[in-house]
Write a protein that binds this DNA or RNA. Structure first.
Lengths: 269, 269
DNA sequence: CGTAGTATTGATAGAGCTCAATTTACGTGG
DNA sequence: CCACGTAAATTGAGCTCTATCAATACTACG
């Protein structure tokens, strides 16, 4: 099975609902688009966010944006493509921590360290915007509510990480794979509402394994098993969820993207 | 760039160095003590932090402060004792996410959800301070730098979680246990400099298992093995590290608590 | 068309789990 | 201070799940 150009997927479709006329709508700030889904931003906030995305960098598939244990400490916002963060262990094995899509802010964990705690690499060709800690600092000093929003997004990510921690620590290989399949679908769908139960996986089985704490071989067997159970269908890197309820049950999956509550946020400035 | 001793960061039975005379020094705000290790707080910040800790609650060992999937959304600061957060899976198995010591802020992940994403329970008798989202919101609106500090602390925790994710996903049972032993020692030592290589474990083997993704039985065997390797000695719940270098090697352990950098923080208000 | 990365499949080994039986430690009441 | 009851730790035996090793088949791409 070969994974298809995931690129084709992200740039336009992410904000597909915001297309204007026949041409692609390109937001001045992708990050503002994300935050704008949660709260209504003021003009001042919007323009401050725009300044984060003035400097862009294009990445080839496989390119490394930030390497673990190296200095740098830049921050990034993903404009297009898929990016992942991972750590490498002494024996060369890799643990993928997180997949990031357009609109994600990267490098926040590096804020507090002199050297990066994790590697950030492009999974597909990608475009990111680069800014530094000082810029970020000014942003949240001037716009406390944006600071609060970044904190809130960090918590969403934290919960996603602890869910995966629980999955890897306490569930079977099949459940972990099923959970990843569901999570990827949900996150892609958040970006593109036209995705319902079919999507391009965009990951090799080795990458799935490195994210779920399994070997590529065993991932292959688990995918087959999930397929034989009639929960999904696979064709050329495209996954179709046939029985969402069954898959959710098999995965022990909790969809957290439902009951968000940002009503506690400070008021607009 | 300002480097911080992480020790200062991780609170514990803490503040031993702040005894005044023969009596214990009780800070008006434990959280302010933690933040104060990173930056110099203004009077305004200090008094705002003090207001977070006006309402205290005493907990018996085993008491549950917040239950997963229940509403509430309160925030807490640990004053004394050890607290843990965990999630329960459908089959009843538990994944312990994190152990928290005095000075820790709890419930932040719950900020953004209507129902709590994790359970918080007292591992020992403990005292916590309680405040609500609105109070927190006002705090960070009025004092953006405190918001930034909370974000920074959240990142430290995130990195700790991803390190554990990597440990559970990619290392052997022995390595996970060894890593936990080292991490607990380091965090306790941060709180009490008199701890060097011997400490009270304070956890049952089942709890160690639930934190590392192992069964209690296997934890027992791994502890024995680590002991037989001459890396530690055990007696009545007390662990003594005999060969720190060897233990670190066995654990694949990275001590992140070294090179913090908070120089990017906004200036004092 | 050849090449390299990826996927698939089979056979075998081993790490960690489960079940079960003791033993030890410890808080409680007498 | 001692007896008792319960939680925790320990140990053994057998088994399952997942890793490992190895061979083969795809598939995109130059």
């Amino acid at each position: 099975m070969r994974l298809i150009d995931f690129n084709a997927l992200i740039p336009g479709q992410c904000f597909g609902s915001r297309r204007l006329g026949g041409s692609e709508y390109v937001p001045a700030s992708y990050f503002a688009e994300v935050l704008g889904e949660h709260v209504e931003l003021s003009e001042g906030e919007r323009s401050a966010l725009t300044r984060l995305e003035e400097r862009t960098r294009s990445l080839r598939r496989g390119a490394i944006l930030q390497r673990e244990n190296e200095a740098g400490g830049e921050l990034y916002i993903v404009r297009s493509g898929t990016v992942m963060s991972y750590v490498l262990l002494d024996d060369g094995s890799r643990q993928i921590l997180r997949f990031h899509y357009a609109g994600a802010m990267l490098g926040v964990p590096g804020l507090i360290y002199r050297t990066a705690p994790e590697t950030i690499a492009a999974l597909t060709d990608a475009v990111v915007c680069v800014f530094d800690k000082a810029t970020f600092s000014r942003l949240i000093a001037d716009h406390p509510r944006i600071g609060a929003l970044v904190l809130a997004l960090a918590q969403i990510e934290r919960v996603a990480l602890t869910d995966r921690l629980a999955a890897i620590g306490r569930t079977s290989a099949k459940a972990r794979v099923a959970a990843l399949l569901l999570d990827l679908r949900n996150r892609m769908r958040a970006a593109d509402r036209s995705i319902t139960d079919s999507y391009q996986l965009g990951l090799t089985q080795e990458e799935i394994g490195d994210a779920t704490g399994l070997t590529a071989v065993h991932v292959n067997r688990m995918l087959r098993q999930v397929e034989e159970d009639g929960l999904i269908r696979r064709e050329a890197g495209r996954v179709t969820i046939l029985d969402e309820r069954g898959l959710t049950r098999a995965a022990n999956y909790i969809d957290r993207y439902e009951d968000l509550d940002l009503s506690w946020l400070p008021p607009r400035d």
